[in-house]
Amino acid sequence: MAIAGDLRIFNLVDIFQVLRKDKKDGILVIESSPKNYAVYFKDGDIIFIREVAKVFYVYLDVDFEGVLRKDGISREEMYNILVARLPNFLNLKEGKFSFTPGFIKYPLDITSQVHIEKLIMYLSRQLTEEEVGRKISDLHLVFEKSEKYEEIGRKAFLTDYEKKLLTLVDGKNKVEDIINISKINELMVKRTLYGFLASGIIQRERKKERRIGFDLTRGLLNKIIAKIKGL
């Protein structure tokens, strides 16, 4: 199954959200001008970033140790080089992306030192009004904290105002209530909620009751089910 698209309409925060969710391993390739990027993911976190002239170079190596050898980089240098390449990569707003799951074999002892949740929050703070409207499209939305919100929040390095906003996410307050109570600028609140959602700190309110706009009996529902099955 594919994870591919265009960065202009599906930004890095959205991509990181999908890769983080199932702790995916693989390579995210971004074809952009003047450089192409290959971003190596392990357990949903970024391990390494390569800048490549041609995309097919990325698929010549199936062993991560081989990638480092080819680039002449030692394990000790890996983190510093990743940190040096991150700003350019995180600045990307245009380009085609595609994620190839699996493919690369990582040594067991390699782990990321940059939590994806931190990058998600960093990028969310810069989202445009149009971008935040994609997720926080309605002031009546209600969110609740996820089960692991404290652990994820620590990884995300939340700012003071973000921590304050998180206390207002309680499964009852609507987005408009959070804006009114916090007295924080609407765009900043929406950016924060966007980041919280993408990093898994909060989730949609799980509705215990749902409204059925017809006096539907179990007998009638069974009739409908039988009819559909028979079509």
Binding site: A2, A4, G5, F10, D14, R134, K135, D138, K207
Partner: peptide, 24 residues
């Protein structure tokens, strides 16, 4: 499923109905 550009609009639709007509 082949066009992630449409996912944002689908989310907007879900947000709208979930906020006003929360049917199954």
């Amino acid at each position: 499923s082949t066009d992630p550009a449409t996912f944002h609009e689908a989310r907007r639709i879900i947000n709208y109905f979930e906020s006003r007509y929360p049917a199954p």
